[in-house]
Design a protein around this nucleic acid. Structure first.
Lengths: 334, 334
DNA sequence: TTGAAAGCGCTAACAT
DNA sequence: ATGTTAGCGCTTTCAA
């Protein structure tokens, strides 16, 4: 079992303060004599010592922990975001504690309460509802907090998200350009999300610009982001028009999967000249022979900005409730 | 700011003990009078109270936190494992804290030390080296600990992993059966891993059984699990034989990606009659027209077993250092 | 049915 | 250059 400072002091006959000074590497600074220093250091080398974080936290009112709350930790986007966050935390000797909300506002509140009780110094949340965390602010007014990915309109917290309007425009631009005179349909799900709305805004902008005044007819939307939604939307499309579109884009890989399954089952295979666009990327899109554009979000920069904001706040510097935007990249295959 | 028990006691004129009894829902049990109870409850309803976990931990020598240490949190397998772990933790009012080791033994040791200092009650680790955590056991002999995914031979800790030998056999059986008289090559990477070795063992078993006494010539291996490894292995194959194999399997999706890229660049496209097998699964394998078998690991059960073991140990019940095995499933497409 | 007090391991302020 | 002490918020005896 590991020793406490007090025990070390007792067993070496040195005072608690001195031990602490030596252990915390401040021996020089306080000019501890070489022998007492050696005495303590040898003892520690022999018996070991590990800082008791709970005790330290109790005293310092600080836990050196930051919380991350997202809808789903298994979702690749959030998994990458979390991995990047964890790297930042590790580099500053912070630990990352995380929780999924399953897109349930009640779970989200529970998670926030829980992390607050555990005294996290910072909180990064991808909210599943427009955030009004007034109770949070009441209880711990100086909690460092930042919103990621889902930038609901609000002006209390800094937020960082991808440039969804711009990337929506960029993707649509590529699609319409390659499609020539053909229309480009947009299958999108989870329209309650600000990011999805922004993507639609971007799409509509370009569609109008390309002369599709009735762009609303090109947008097919569903409430829930899932493979089932993708299937449903494409099935409805095929039923109405008799055939799949020649060019389309989707709001997520899940929707793409559903849409593709339906195309495959309608046509027996994916036509090689089908023009595809999608938000989010996966290496296996390589396997398709089609021309396909995908939008890849920059989780590293998202995490870096979120962490920077948290750090600022934890350092006591006030941070304005800005809405930061991170550029996405478009990848083209074939 | 949230009140402490002491403050509540002071401001309601009740004793600390009484407040605590009421707050912790033991009013009935200790027959606190209705009025004192109402008094305190009203006060709490008005001003709020949140348990201070650090203080509680200091007293109880318990943090209600469990740590998860894996090579890479962004890896879909580990991300799913972690999401499942987090659900279990949440259901028991534990928090999950996690860290990546980037497959670096030094980082792994640091992570373990760190989590130990933070006093996690349980530790789940997917080690990147044969685990000899003697220092760990010295310092906190009663730490609940379990190994996942990478079941290095050892007899100190319980371990839970997929049935790699069996699923290797199952996959190979399907492949050889579909391949007829053709050979089935196995491209595999990260051979230092017990799981990979087991998969090779499974493969070799079936290959021999099928009359391929020289099965070692069918196995092409690389040290590092990456797309680059896949490319390299396939490039070497093509250079040596003049063409890609007609049937092959890979040890991971990364290797599959690399292998496929190389086939594509050699042949211009993926032949539709190429027979493919791979460990790990992804929905987008749907997009290929080929017959393809994939092995899907059961992260939920892996997490459930790991968590159960941790729970047992945390409850003080001794657990033997068993090696638990979780069946994988084989998916066939086209 | 309620209260008082000790102590978990650490830090910081204040002595020497 | 080194020592003493109080106290963070909680739980747990032990008393009344």
């Amino acid at each position: 079992m590991t020793k406490t400072i007090k025990e070390i002091a007792g067993e070496t006959g040195v005072s608690i303060t001195t031990v602490r000074l030596i252990i915390s590497g401040q021996a020089e600074k306080y000019r501890i004599s070489a022998k007492t220093r050696a005495l303590v250091e040898d003892y520690v080398a022999l018996h070991g010592y590990v800082l008791h974080h709970a005790a330290r936290s109790l005293k310092l009112k600080r836990t050196d922990a930051v919380g991350l709350i997202v809808p789903d930790l298994a979702n690749p986007f959030f998994a990458r975001l979390m991995a990047a966050m964890e790297r930042h935390c590790r580099s500053q000797n912070l630990v990352l504690v995380s929780a999924s909300t399953n897109d349930d506002p009640a779970l989200e509140m529970r998670a926030i309460d829980n992390f607050l009780a555990r005294g996290v110094d910072g909180l990064v949340v991808a909210p599943c509802q427009p955030p009004t965390y007034k109770s949070v602010l009441n209880r711990k007014p100086k909690l460092a907090m930042v919103l990621v990915d889902r930038d609901y309109p609000q002006d209390r917290f800094p937020a960082v998200a991808s440039d969804n309007v711009e990337s929506g425009m960029a993707l649509a631009r590529q699609m319409f350009s390659d499609a020539g005179a053909e229309p480009v349909d947009f299958f999108c799900a989870y329209t309650a999300l600000p990011s999805i709305r922004d993507r639609i805004t971007g799409f509509s902008e370009i569609a109008s610009e390309q002369g599709w005044a009735d762009w609303e007819r090109l947008v097919h939307s569903a409430a829930e982001d899932s493979v089932a939604s993708g299937r449903l939307l494409m099935r409805n499309f095929i039923t109405a028009r008799g055939a799949p579109p020649r060019a389309f884009m989707t709001s997520s890989l899940l929707v793409l999967e559903g849409v593709m399954q339906e195309v495959k089952s309608a046509l027996g295979a994916i036509p090689e000249d089908l023009l595809i666009g999608t938000f989010d990327d996966h290496a296996m899109l390589d396997f398709l022979p089609n021309r396909i554009y995908s939008v890849v979000q920059d989780e590293k920069t998202l995490a870096a900005l979120a962490f920077a904001s948290i750090s600022e706040q934890m350092a006591g510097r006030a941070v304005e409730a800005s809405h930061m935007t991170v550029p996405s990249r478009i990848v083209r295959r074939n």
